[in-house]
Amino acid sequence: MALHVHRGTRADLLAEDLAAILAVPPHDPFAPEIVIVPARGVERWLTQRLSHRLGALHGDDGVCAGVQFLSPNSLVTLLLGTDRDDPWLPDQLLWPLLSTIDTSLDEEWAHSLAAHLGHHQDGAAGRLRAGRRYSVARRLAGLFHGYA
């Protein structure tokens, strides 16, 4: 696996250089190309830019596929083999966070969260709101991971 480091002052020129590199098919067509980006917004922008160049026959009808975007932290954990051991990964943090949410819903500081999850509501509305537990905990775990 080759490592290419590019840096510059203009993101559009860097995206063009990346598109030129990715336009050359790899030896293994099923191996993803790994691209490191600093934020999700850059990932979305870069995906859109690359889709205008990669696989495009006429104009802007291409697609950006086979590219795995990672954050610098995700790359380090992948290279060190600690990607399954990191307790701050959202999928790892989710379960302790769910436990903390369940034990803290009666606390004063968690009043807004308890109301959002329908903690003291009965009936269909309470059950519907209680069904948000997993998605709320997953969202919070993602935010905590982003802060790290």
Rank of each mutant, 00 (worst) to 15 (best):
61 D>W: 04
25 P>C: 03
135 S>A: 10
70 L>C: 00
90 P>C: 06
117 L>I: 04
69 F>Y: 14
137 A>D: 01
92 Q>M: 10
111 H>M: 12
81 G>F: 06
138 R>H: 15
51 S>T: 01
50 L>Y: 01
81 G>S: 07
40 R>F: 01
76 V>K: 14
78 L>C: 05
26 P>F: 12
56 A>N: 03
133 R>N: 02
1 M>D: 09
35 V>T: 05
129 R>K: 13
69 F>G: 05
44 R>M: 13
19 A>C: 00
19 A>Q: 00
110 A>T: 05
93 L>T: 03
80 L>Y: 02
91 D>T: 14
54 L>A: 00
126 G>W: 04
9 T>I: 13
100 T>L: 15
95 W>P: 07
1 M>P: 08
75 L>M: 08
26 P>G: 12
76 V>T: 11
11 A>H: 11
126 G>K: 00
14 L>R: 00
112 S>G: 08
112 S>Y: 11
105 L>G: 02
120 H>S: 14
129 R>Q: 10
93 L>Q: 04
33 E>A: 15
4 H>D: 08
140 L>R: 07
137 A>S: 02
56 A>I: 03
36 I>K: 04
147 Y>S: 12
71 S>C: 08
94 L>H: 14
41 G>K: 15
131 G>H: 06
115 A>S: 12
124 A>H: 14
1 M>W: 08
95 W>C: 04
122 D>T: 14
67 V>T: 04
17 D>T: 15
66 G>R: 06
22 L>R: 03
12 D>T: 10
43 E>Y: 07
48 Q>K: 13
129 R>G: 01
17 D>M: 13
9 T>F: 11
113 L>F: 01
95 W>N: 09
68 Q>H: 11
19 A>M: 02
129 R>H: 09
80 L>P: 00
146 G>L: 12
99 S>L: 07
14 L>K: 03
95 W>F: 12
76 V>C: 09
62 G>R: 01
83 D>E: 12
108 E>Y: 09
93 L>H: 08
25 P>Y: 04
43 E>H: 07
116 H>D: 08
141 A>K: 01
32 P>V: 00
62 G>N: 02
115 A>P: 05
86 D>Y: 07
130 A>F: 08
26 P>N: 13
84 R>M: 10
147 Y>H: 14
137 A>W: 06
70 L>N: 02
58 H>W: 15
147 Y>G: 09
19 A>K: 02
60 D>F: 12
104 S>M: 08
41 G>F: 08
112 S>W: 09
48 Q>T: 10
17 D>H: 13
30 F>S: 13
74 S>T: 14
67 V>F: 03
140 L>M: 13
128 L>G: 13
75 L>H: 08
131 G>M: 05
8 G>H: 01
130 A>R: 14
11 A>S: 15
13 L>V: 09
106 D>K: 09
15 A>V: 01
97 L>R: 02
111 H>T: 15
102 D>P: 03
123 G>T: 03
3 L>D: 07
103 T>E: 10
12 D>M: 04
